[in-house]
Nucleic acid binder design. Sequence first.
DNA 1: AAGGTCACG
DNA 2: GACGTACGTGACCTTG
Length: 947
Amino acid sequence: MAEHQHLYLVDGSSYIFRAYHRLPPLTDPEGTPVGAVYGYTTMLWKLATDLDEADGPTHLAVILDASGKSFRNDIFPEYKANRPPPPEDLVPQFPLIRDATRAFSLPCIEEQGLEADDLIATYARAAQAQGWDVTIVSSDKDLMQLVGEREGPNGPARIDMLDTMKSQRIYIEEVEAKFGVKPELVGDVLALMGDSVDNIPGIYGIGPKTASKLIAEHGSLTAALDFAPEMKKSKLKERLLESRQDAEMSRVLVTLKEDCDLPQPLDEFKLDGVPPEPLAAFLEKHGFSSLLRRLDSGKGSPERPNNLNPAKQETEGAVASAQGSRQPLPEMPAVDRGSYETVQTMERLEAWITRATAARLVAVDTETSSLDAMRAELVGVSLALGPNDACYIPLAHGGNDMFAERPEQIDRDQAVAALKPLLEDDSVIKIGQNIKYDINVLSRYGIDVAPVDDTMIISFTLDAGRGEVGMGGHGMDELSDRHLGHTPLSFKEVCGTGKKAIPFGEVDLDRATEYAAEDADVTWRLHRHMKPRLADESGTRIYERVDRPLIPVVAQMERHGIKVDRARLSRLSEEFAKETARLEGEIHGIAGQEFTVGSPKQLGDILFDKLGFKGGKKGKSGQYSTDHSMLEKLAGEGAEIAKKVLEWRQLAKLKSTYTDALQEAINPDTGRVHTSYSLVGAQTGRLSSTDPNLQNIPIRTPIGRQIREAFVPDEGNVLLAADYSQIELRLAAHMADVPTLKEAFAQGEDIHARTAKEMFGEVNRDTRAQAKTINFAILYGISRWGLAGRLEVEPDEAQAMIDTYFQRFPGIQRYIHETLETVRERGYSETLFGRKTWFPRINSKNVAERQGSERAAINAPIQGTSADIIKRAMVRMMPALDDAGLGHVRMLLQVHDELVFELPEGDVAAASPIIERVMAEAAGPAVKLDVLLGIEIGTGISWDAAH
DNA sequence: AAGGTCACG
DNA sequence: GACGTACGTGACCTTG
């Protein structure tokens, strides 16, 4: 009797996508993401060592999708065209899958022009024909067409499937349960359903239910389509008649090709034990130490012989292994600026590109003529592959100076063309310090830099709040000082400062190389130093899944920019100029003298000394306070001059900060305004916006709103503004677990009115306004004096309100207490998604300092969670719109709880529900909220009109 | 460069 | 008894 043979065919490509999404984002000691590879490795381990199991494999091969187009694209060019690009930290794992397979000494099959499914089908049929049993390790629904039944001892051999992720075998019964038809009809069902991920059209409006019903009733796709004319009138009938061709083409697309040429004969798939040496080297390299120990202990197999459940069970072990096994990093040699190369020939450039491609990790820095990425000219590029292994490629030095001799340099276009494949190579990670800048500069030269890693953002993930106040502590010079004990050449030292400053393009090449190559070198070193800390300090999740994928998204928003109506701003500027001039005259008249109205010092002296109004001095400067609340108070007492100064200030502010400045900010090439978002701007994880700041455009007063009317869509388009309604209060309700608030949100109540009712028993304009103030006070960390000041009541009364609030909304007090306890103990707060913010002064002896930290610490988890949620929505937004054929919708702005889009008017109906869904569901699946996230959407021909 | 003020969430 | 009083930002103006 022939020995029983059982072939396992592993669908490698589909496995790693699922492993990526199911497993935590681990990184190896060098900082390369390996979560999916780890999952894949444990699965292979289990399979390859299951030889002795009853239903285990005697033969095994891994089948992968080859890159590039398949024959299906010849049938239908748009096949798989809608696929969003794979996640950034998954891309570099693809080549590692092949490494892992080779490490097990297993065959790894892929063929240009064929998909893994076709090879699997072909091998499965070939093995079946020889009387072997076959198990397909996959859960892909297309492959379910192959599943068959063993029809008695002499019938054809069995083909089944194994979903290792769910530890589930898929036999014919499971296929029938899923599709309502036998496996041979599954293709007919799929042809009707279509598949949005693969862009198989199917028939619009027919989903899995209708499709399987039709096929089950009529017995085949052709029969169902033939029957359509006899159906009674319905939408379904119309669609079947209209889209018959689509369905027939879809049927061809979902058909598996079962007669490919076999790249390797079946016999070579024989399992013969796993040679330990290459496997050990692989496990060692990637820090999979728990697997390595098992290998060393000679067991050769994981400890669970009976159940197939590697993924779930291995998760914790994986974390432990990736974190625990890391050896101390080798010392890096001191920075030696003399070691850097100036690359001046194509030959040398090609050599660097070849080495960088092989290294799979390269630090990149661009030198330019401007800090504004949307205007900067490329002056040079530096690369680093290791400590003191860096170069500078000058591209536009000396070009502007007609008298100096232009130093030898590679032609810029030629260099850009040569660098493009490297900078776009999926398997090479480009490290940058604030790489969003380089992405945007290079994007204007036709290079789409990806995948990327960013030392500034890694630093922010690890150390937000830890640095000195100001710069935020994530600039390169500070990081280099702090982590490497090295002070790099500063830009000032190289280019000078103030009037004597020269553009970088005029720096001589030796000096330029020292500066530029050092920046890349230092960036590479910082990456080596900090990236592994992410795993050790539980920063990987927020970095890999939120902040890092956000980089290209925000970069694109910046490149889009937003159109601004210059003429409209100019008219407003004129109006404001006239008004301020008039007011200034009147103010001088009342004061009885001329003075600078814009000087708080002079104004204070006029008001309180000359005119004799009562008011207090302020702080150490000894200057009178003249701020809004003080002027309001004086105005309330009848001071005409205070009213006029208030009005003057409003108009002067609007003119200088908005109507004048925004006109200046219009980019001459694009005609639009391109802000720059900082991903490390706010300690809580919020973005910030600069040059110009588009997150503080006026909205609260009618006069200010006129500025919003100048933000407009392109012709034929509209602006769409979508914002989270009361997101921070909703999050507070969830995080502090406040039943009353949660219920109020669930009922869709006006939350401030509800608070007023709880607090004062009565809802009117006054009590609602007070309640609103109290709600915000809670979010910001309350004090009786602060609240008293805002509500203009006595501190005792404010304290009574706080007590009532805590009583009516149990949970809040506990949240505040527990948050502070944790922060005092650990030094940092955490959002629901694990983002940390450090509070180094939380235990300060200085009371003001300490209490300030306490208030910030109460607020940070709430503000930070809200920031995490909208960031997650931003990351998912374009793929979701793309899927719906709305890839042309442009996401332009983010204002903390609001996203602004530009799209053709006709697409509003299609895009709105997608935008709403992505935003509303952005917390999941990582976090399940007890409250719904409400989204409000508006559209219009200006940003103002969209609200 | 610092302080004051005020625009936003 | 001090210390100042709501969280997070960025831009502009005046002053030293």
